[in-house]
């Protein structure tokens, strides 16, 4: 789609609406530009938006628009790409510049967990998957681990389905269960933010519905940012939606506003399937 879509209209791009919603922000992205090739070209350009605490925020846009890149900036997953760098701007999570020299990526990822498109449980038991992060943190007491595993599995709406087979391999679970197990694993270390990169794209409709239901419930305790290609999913589960195109934030507003009456024509053309 990127190859055939028209270039963004500069006037529209400059009029992104409501990038700093009221209320406490968990994530503040300020004039962020990002490059994968040592600054030669910017994959993200001058992104400014605040993600409110304990809400679900969706990033939407055509493939290659930068939404997953931005998501990976939020827990410094892009550090793994040697030639990548932030060329301008800043990301603050809980008022802390996450790229400051004194912030370790490992510590950051305890606060900012991530769930991937393809569920990736470890080839271990269900119990060990959930307990993994806590053990890495040095927690060894069985009672604490058991409590955390049960709480996380309950939180991920998986407990009733697996409570009698916690020692079974996680790989024996269905796809939807494996994805919810990965969410439970992320929740176990009690992050503040959970990032989700197309978490339902490999799931059938029933498993998708269960994960969506879970995301809706998780907003009570976590700030969630989700990348999705499904307009319906974004409209069902998110409070706010950001539309990206060619590395720029085109529009950011409440989900209702974006899907019923977007301010910018490009957003409307994209969500209504008119890009081409």
């Amino acid at each position: 789609m990127q190859d055939t879509a028209q270039s963004p209209n500069q006037q529209d791009v400059n009029s992104t609406s409501n990038t700093k919603p009221e209320g406490k922000s968990m994530i503040e992205i300020d004039d962020l530009s990002f490059s994968y090739d040592q600054g030669k070209t910017n994959t993200l350009r001058n992104i400014t938006l605040n993600v409110p605490e304990k809400q679900v925020t969706s990033f939407i846009g055509p493939s290659g628009c930068g939404k997953s890149t931005l998501l990976r900036c939020l827990n410094r997953m892009n550090d793994l790409v040697e030639t990548s760098r932030i060329t301008t701007g800043q990301i603050r999570i809980m008022d802390q510049d996450i790229n400051a020299k004194n912030v370790s990526a490992i510590e950051l990822r305890k606060q900012v967990g991530m769930v991937f498109q393809k569920y990736n449980p470890f080839p271990k038991s269900i119990y060990d998957n959930v307990a993994y992060g806590l053990r890495i943190q040095g927690i060894k007491k069985k009672a604490i681990l058991e409590e955390a595993v049960e709480k996380s599995l309950r939180g991920a709406a998986l407990w009733d389905e697996v409570k009698d087979r916690l020692k079974d391999s996680a790989l024996g679970l269905s796809g939807g269960q494996q994805q919810r197990l990965c969410i439970a694993r992320t929740m176990a270390v009690k992050p503040k933010v959970i990032l989700m990169d197309e978490p339902c794209s490999a799931l059938d409709p029933i498993a998708t519905a269960k994960v969506e239901e879970l995301i809706t419930e998780l907003r009570q305790d976590f700030t969630i940012v989700i990348v999705t290609h499904s307009m319906q999913q974004a409209s069902r589960i998110s409070d706010r939606t950001a539309f990206f195109y060619l590395g720029e934030l085109i529009e950011y507003d409440t989900t209702e506003q974006i899907f019923t009456n977007p301010s910018i024509k490009q957003t409307e053309d994209y969500i209504s399937g008119r890009f081409g």
């Binding site: 024509k265 409307e268 053309d269 399937g273 008119r274 890009f275 081409g276």
Partner: peptide, 12 residues
């Protein structure tokens, strides 16, 4: 009238 056609022409 102000919009271009949809990618799905059947939708139009």
């Amino acid at each position: 009238s102000s919009h271009q056609g949809h990618i799905l022409t059947n939708f139009d």
